[in-house]
Design a binder for these strands. Sequence first.
DNA 1: TACATATGAAACCATAAGGTACCATGTCAA
DNA 2: TTGACATGGTACCTTATGGTTTCATATGTA
Lengths: 104, 104
Amino acid sequence: METQPTFRALADPTRRDILLMLRDKEMTIAEVTDNFDMTRAAVKKHLTVLSDGGLITVRAQGRERINSLNPAGMAPIRDWLTFFDAFWDTRLSALKSEIEKDTQ
Amino acid sequence: METQPTFRALADPTRRDILLMLRDKEMTIAEVTDNFDMTRAAVKKHLTVLSDGGLITVRAQGRERINSLNPAGMAPIRDWLTFFDAFWDTRLSALKSEIEKDTQ
DNA sequence: TACATATGAAACCATAAGGTACCATGTCAA
DNA sequence: TTGACATGGTACCTTATGGTTTCATATGTA
């Protein structure tokens, strides 16, 4: 799996905001654009980068393009972060005890 | 907490490689440079970006600068990713069962 | 069909980013 | 003190990136 496109996609604040918006509902390019102070063309470029990073999926519906969040696309990031888990004993044990408490 | 410097720091593959190297041991700028095909000045810039992102700490030791991994700096990324946890039921339950198996 | 709507795409701009070259400064060692 | 060594810092170059404008194309609708 190529991680670069995903890290690259997350590096821009506008794109991260778009992802947060798409949590609530799928949106057309025009709808996404309504939330920003920039042209539709600029937003389209951001959506392309997000798509390249596997963070969203796009499907055509008539003349519209429905953009949907693809949370699975964040796996490369999560996986890469696990490379540093050895330094996170504290956090991991906290999570573990939290889950254990939950399963009682 | 400002997340942008951290996401920005992780967007470059060279910088991610530097972080992986620093897991094993602290390194001076010259030592980090030995691992790449670029000048010390370029590596220094990367280290500055990593420092700005809170991902490494630098301390002076004589004429050297010791660069150390600061895994806590990745918290902003981990925290941001949790915004999408609602879409991760499958992965979370897998982790949960994994931990449950571990605690048997 | 005729016109408005939703995108796609390319040309163009200014700025940010990744690198190099070069010179200054601080520190270790004889 | 005198070099040698490790960095700091700046000027400069090239390419990538974020945006806008403008025009073409496809689809919905009166």
